[in-house]
Design a protein around this nucleic acid. Structure first.
Lengths: 341, 341
DNA sequence: CTGAAAGCGCTTACAG
DNA sequence: CTGAAAGCGCTTACAG
């Protein structure tokens, strides 16, 4: 490990006190132009880079923010959401000289411990609150811990931290209307686990669009946002006395699983069954038939969330709520006219 | 932000000097059992958690390691490698109380700056060197910066840092032999960019397996590890005067792109063309036909890499090289008997 | 065994 | 404008 140059050495070389060196380098007032440039020259000559550790202790800040991803490894391997989300976060963080600490947790319980640890160590100055649950215990925890936080797709009302949202209700409505216009009268939904806010919102959007279309509220089965969950749902829906002619899934992974399973059972998509997802992951465009979906923008969401979080940490007033453009319907080959009866 | 309890307060409450409190809490020798338990009681009562920042400055350590992921956002969205890799890293880091700082970069040049910054700030105590290139400039950079590093799938010879490898040559050989046994005599390869070590290794493995099988070294075209690259390669290979009857792709994404494109052109897989990938991403099992591939274990690789890195940082002697189990052939539906001539 | 001191590298009041 | 001092929270020699 190379020895570091400290501000003391810079001050010595410039022939000034360390406090003057500090003030000069940080652009603080009360330093003559002459000494300022002398200090700068010394710093350059020595290749001085301020120590984050020294600064951190002094400023009582870590210059890091935290993201806890609660995912099974197996699921993480198939879930492209976080790559894009993180890359959006990074785009905002890097120029502001913050870093992202990423943790992976396997359960809600482990996540809680991770947040606690992160806060106790003061390893980060703030955290993202993603994949919020109904009555999410992390909310109380973070308030208690006094750690700044930003919600990602949090509830519009009653959420105590700043948040960023990408609304998908309009996209889901458009999807349901699209299916209705293709003659579908029985449109099912495979939801995510009901404990998740975003799962509920999609159920609500599906239901209310059906009602507005004057259609019956079709079969609903609870999935788990996974590929295998989609396969299970396929069996369940096809086993119904009156199977649906279209299925709206809570995410693309579920839709792909469902689509594969029904095809294995000899059901043609979209001729006999229309299938749609939600998220707009790349792979939706790679499967056959290509998946109709509601396109989200996780990287945009990540960037806005990071912006809000840094603003909160640095005490900027800033907007407490930020909405990125609505998720929107993308029609591909997995949806088509309802089969003739 | 709640006020923190410091070791000074703990010492006061226990009625001892801070140095004794520190020694007691850290299990250092030279503290009587009586004071040790008194200090512990005080710490518990106060809810004391040592400040990472204080400790960090003192120890000249960040208790963080860094990973720079060089990926276009669009690619990151479709690339499930890092989710698994990171989750493996985390599994090793968490119990040892290290954290992962993740950075996303869009180019080799930006990556270099990220590594420099990481080292200059001393934000991390070590870094992972993944996706190594031939004559990778990061190697010299990191040696110069004096930052501990661990290579992921680095060259077996001449790599100056500890490294972990998962060899895939045997898997690729098995794949080629499998295709040969199915009657294929003209087996193409779509490689990754030649600058990458892992791309070259796969080319070499393909070539040498062909030679050992007594087959001609089939057409080779350079892809870029992306889905679209696979599509382009499809056109190229099908346009050949003597198109191959099987294609081994440098990764699954490429294989999926290639497979989709040839199918669009009316070529049946595997009846008219066998296609195989490399990586073993989940989605390979979700496309139709399901993709034959060479299965890697990125999370295992991540975990071993993290272990080596922490050992290097903490000055453990430890193994300098670590091999996880070889990547192995997984036969699925995208490969089959060569078409009758 | 115990405690006072110094130091990790910085910045922020505060005298001069 | 400039500099000496204190302090952020810890640990590590070193006296006693």
């Amino acid at each position: 490990m190379n020895k570091r140059v400290t501000i003391v050495e810079v001050a010595e070389r410039a022939g000034v006190a360390v406090s003057s060196a500090s003030n000069a380098l940080n652009g603080n007032p009360g330093v003559s132009e002459a000494t300022r440039s002398r200090v700068r020259a010394a710093a350059d000559a020595l290749g001085y880079v301020p120590s984050l550790r020294g600064k951190s202790l002094q400023a009582k800040r870590a210059f890091c923010v935290g993201l806890v991803v609660e995912r099974d490894v197996a699921v993480l391997e198939a879930d492209p959401f976080f790559g894009a989300f993180i890359s959006g976060i990074e785009r905002e963080l890097a120029p502001r000289e913050y870093a992202l600490v990423l943790q992976v947790s396997g359960s809600a319980e482990e996540s809680r411990r991770r947040y606690e640890q992160l806060a106790a160590d003061r390893r980060v100055d703030g955290v993202f609150l993603n994949e919020l649950r109904v009555d999410d215990p992390r909310i109380a925890l973070l308030r208690e811990l006094g750690l700044p936080a930003v919600g990602v797709n949090a509830a519009r009302e009653g959420f105590p931290f700043p948040f960023v949202r990408q609304d998908g209700a309009a996209g889901v409505s458009d999807l349901v209307f699209h299916l209705a216009s293709l003659g579908h009268r029985r449109i099912a939904h495979v939801s995510g686990p009901a404990e998740f806010l975003h799962a509920r919102e999609r159920v609500d959007a599906w239901r209310s669009a059906l009602l507005r279309s004057g259609l019956e509220v079709g079969p609903l089965c609870e999935g788990d946002f996974t590929y295998d969950g989609g396969r299970v749902a396929a069996d369940e829906l096809l086993g119904l006395q009156r199977p649906p002619t279209a299925v709206v899934c809570a995410n693309d992974l579920t839709a792909i699983g469902l689509m594969n399973r029904v095809q294995e059972l000899g059901v043609r998509v979209p001729d006999e069954l229309s299938v749609a997802g939600y998220d707009g992951i790349r792979f939706g465009d790679y499967v056959r038939p290509a998946l109709t979906t509601v396109q989200t923008a996780p990287s945009h969401l990540g960037q806005e969330a990071a912006r809000l979080l840094l603003d909160a940490i640095e005490g900027e007033v800033g907007a407490d709520e930020r909405f990125v453009e609505n998720a929107s319907l993308v029609i591909r080959a997995s949806t088509g006219p309802a089969p003739a009866r």
